[in-house]
């Protein structure tokens, strides 16, 4: 990422400002949805969806993943995959044992 002309960087900067704007808007949306006091499952889905989009924006543009080399991207996918496996098995373990109490079933 260090081999860029001044012109290109200026283009980058415009993107950064756009990303900042979207992040601010999305934060506002999360908070507003939080005050709506939705039932748990929709609230969970909305909150995680927005958080993922925000995180994606930060990772893609601020952390330059969108134009990063394959080596780095594979590493990111690997750790995200493991993270997902961990979350999934930790929650499924409980659900398998006690049923879907948490979701009100």
């Amino acid at each position: 990422m260090s081999e860029h002309s001044v012109e290109e960087i200026k283009k980058h900067v415009r993107v950064y400002m756009l990303v900042f704007g979207s992040l601010a808007v999305l934060t506002a949306v999360t908070v507003v949805v939080g005050y709506l006091e939705l039932p748990f499952v929709p609230a969970l889905i909305v909150a995680l969806l927005i958080a993922t989009v925000k995180a994606g924006l930060v990772a893609a543009y601020f952390m330059h993943l969108v134009s990063e080399e394959q080596v780095i991207r594979s590493l990111v996918w690997l750790s995200l995959g493991l993270l997902l496996v961990m979350f999934l098995l930790f929650s499924v373990y409980y659900v398998d044992q006690i049923g879907l109490m948490i979701f009100g079933f």
């Binding site: 999360t30 908070v31 949805v33 609230a43 909150a47 995680l48 958080a51 995180a55 930060v58 952390m63």
Partner: peptide, 22 residues
């Protein structure tokens, strides 16, 4: 240094809804 700093930001992006809002 920026990559690290953005990561700290990223963690907060998940922390905020999961701890404060849900």
């Amino acid at each position: 240094a920026g990559l690290y700093w953005h990561f700290v930001d990223l963690v907060w992006i998940f922390l905020f809804p999961t701890i404060y809002l849900l």
